[in-house]
Simulated assay, not measured.
Amino acid sequence: MSQADAATPAADPFVEVIANALREPPVRIRPLPLPDGDQLWLKRVEDLTHRAWQRKGDMRRLLRREREGYARMAEAGLPVVAMVDGHTDWLVTRDAGANLRHLLRSSDVRSRERTAAFAAAGEALGKVHRAGFTHGRPTMRAICWDGECARFISLARYAERRRRNRHFALDVMIFIHSCLCADRSAHDVLGAALGAYLTHAPEGTWPAVHRMALLLSMVAPAATALRLARPGSRELSALPLALAYVTEHQRQP
C-alpha cells in the first residue's frame, strides 16, 4: 500500500487502521486509535491556496524532509519518534507521549515530572547535536515525553547540511524562545534542560549560542516595532526574554 522511502512496512493492525483513515477527507494531523488502546499519528499534505503555499512552503518537500530526518536519526540511534509508514502525501508515526508545551502549561503535571521531562529533552537535544544532526525547529510542541524518554517529532526543517555549531546554537535559541513563549517564568525547567543539554552537547556550543543571541539582538528593534502592530503576539514578546536569558548566563545555566 505504500511507496515509502526510508520507512518501515506497516504491520497488522496498522494496515487497516491507516487504510481506513486515508479514505476519509484529508486532515493535516490526526490521531489514529489502535485496538490495544495505543494510537498512531497521521500527517497529510494540505491542499493550500497560493498565498498559504507561499507562507508554509512546499508541503510535499517538507514531508519528504521529515521522513528523511526520522530515518537518518533512527539509524544513528537518536531519540526520534518511530516512523510506521509513509508516502509522498502522508506520514504515520507512533505516539510519543505529551509534548513539552502541554507539560509546561498543565496544572495537572507535577513539578518533579515536568523537570524530569525537560532534563530528558535537553539531554536528547545534546545527543542529537553531538551526533552531528540538528532538528531545525525544536519547539515545545516538537518534543514529547512518555514518562521515560523524550523524543523529537516535526522534523520538517531537518537538513543534512546543518552540522555546525551555529546550527546547533540556532536550535538552542529556538528551544529557549519557545519555552519562554509558553511560560515566561519557566526558568527552573529551562535551566534543567540546558544543564542536561550542555552535559551532552559538543564543545563550544554555549559560546556559539551567545554569538547567535548577539546576531538576533540586531533584529530585536524590528521585533519591538512589530509588537506595536501585534501586541498580543507571544512569539514577539518572548524574543527579548530569550535574548536576556542568554545574556544573563554568560558561562552556563
Score class of each variant (00 low, 15 high):
Pro79His: 05
Thr88Ser: 15
Arg101Glu: 08
Asp108Leu: 12
Tyr70Lys: 10
Arg137Ile: 01
Arg141Asp: 14
Ala159Ile: 00
Ala98Ile: 05
Thr134Pro: 04
Met59Gln: 15
Glu148Thr: 15
Glu66Arg: 01
Ala71Lys: 02
Glu46Cys: 11
Asp95Cys: 10
Val80Pro: 04
Phe133Ser: 00
Ala117Ile: 11
Phe133Trp: 07
Gly122Asp: 08
Pro138Leu: 03
Asp36Ile: 04
Arg157Gly: 09
Thr139Leu: 00
Ala131Gly: 07
Arg65Glu: 00
Arg55Phe: 06
Gly77Glu: 07
Thr134Cys: 14
Glu46Lys: 12
Trp90Leu: 02
Val92Cys: 05
Arg157Thr: 11
Leu103Lys: 04
Leu104Lys: 07
Val84Phe: 00
Asp85Arg: 08
Val80Cys: 01
Leu125Cys: 06
Pro79Ile: 01
Gly147Val: 15
Pro33His: 02
Glu66Ala: 06
Thr115Cys: 12
Pro31Gln: 04
Asp38Gln: 13
Ile29Met: 12
Ala150Tyr: 02
Gly86Trp: 07
Cys149Glu: 15
Leu32Ala: 03
Arg30Asn: 03
Lys127Arg: 15
Ala156Tyr: 09
Ala117Cys: 05
Arg114Thr: 02
Arg114Leu: 11
Ser107Val: 13
Asp95Gln: 07
Asp89His: 13
Val84Trp: 01
Ala82His: 09
Ala82Asn: 09
Asp36Val: 01
Leu42Thr: 07
Phe133Met: 01
Ser111Phe: 13
Lys56Val: 13
Phe133Asn: 00
Gln39Ala: 15
Thr134Tyr: 12
Met59Pro: 00
Arg112Asn: 14
Tyr158Met: 00
Glu123Gln: 13
Met140Gln: 14
Ile153Ser: 04
Trp90Thr: 00
Arg105Thr: 15
Phe118Val: 14
Gly86Thr: 02
Arg61His: 09
Arg161Met: 01
Pro79Met: 06
Gly37Thr: 06
Arg94Val: 04
Arg137Phe: 00
Ala159Trp: 01
Arg55Trp: 06
Tyr70Asn: 10
Ala82Trp: 01
Gly57Lys: 00
Leu40Lys: 06
Arg130Pro: 00
Cys144Ala: 15
His135Gln: 05
Asp108Val: 11
Asn99Trp: 03
Ser106Pro: 02
Phe118Asp: 10
Ala142Leu: 13
Leu40Gly: 11
Ala131Leu: 05
Pro35Val: 12
Ser154Val: 01
Gly132Met: 02
Ala124His: 04
His129Val: 04
Pro33Phe: 03
Glu68Gly: 08
Gln54Tyr: 12
Asp89Lys: 07
Gln54Pro: 03
Trp53Ser: 05
Gly77Gln: 10
Val45Met: 10
Ala156Trp: 03
Lys43Leu: 01
Leu34His: 06
Gly126Met: 06
Leu155Thr: 11
Leu104Arg: 03
Ala150Asn: 08
Asp89Gly: 12
His135Met: 05
Cys149Phe: 13
Val128His: 02
Ile153Lys: 06
Leu34Tyr: 03
Gly132Ala: 10
Ala156Cys: 11
Met83Asn: 12
Glu160Gln: 03
Met73Ser: 05
Val45Gly: 09
Glu75Phe: 04
Leu100Glu: 02
Ala131Lys: 03
Arg130His: 13
Ala119Thr: 15
Asp108Ile: 13
Phe118Ala: 12
Leu42Asn: 05
Gly122Arg: 08
Pro79Thr: 03
Arg72Asp: 14
Gly77Val: 06
Arg28Ser: 14
Leu91Met: 12
Asp146Val: 08
Val45His: 05
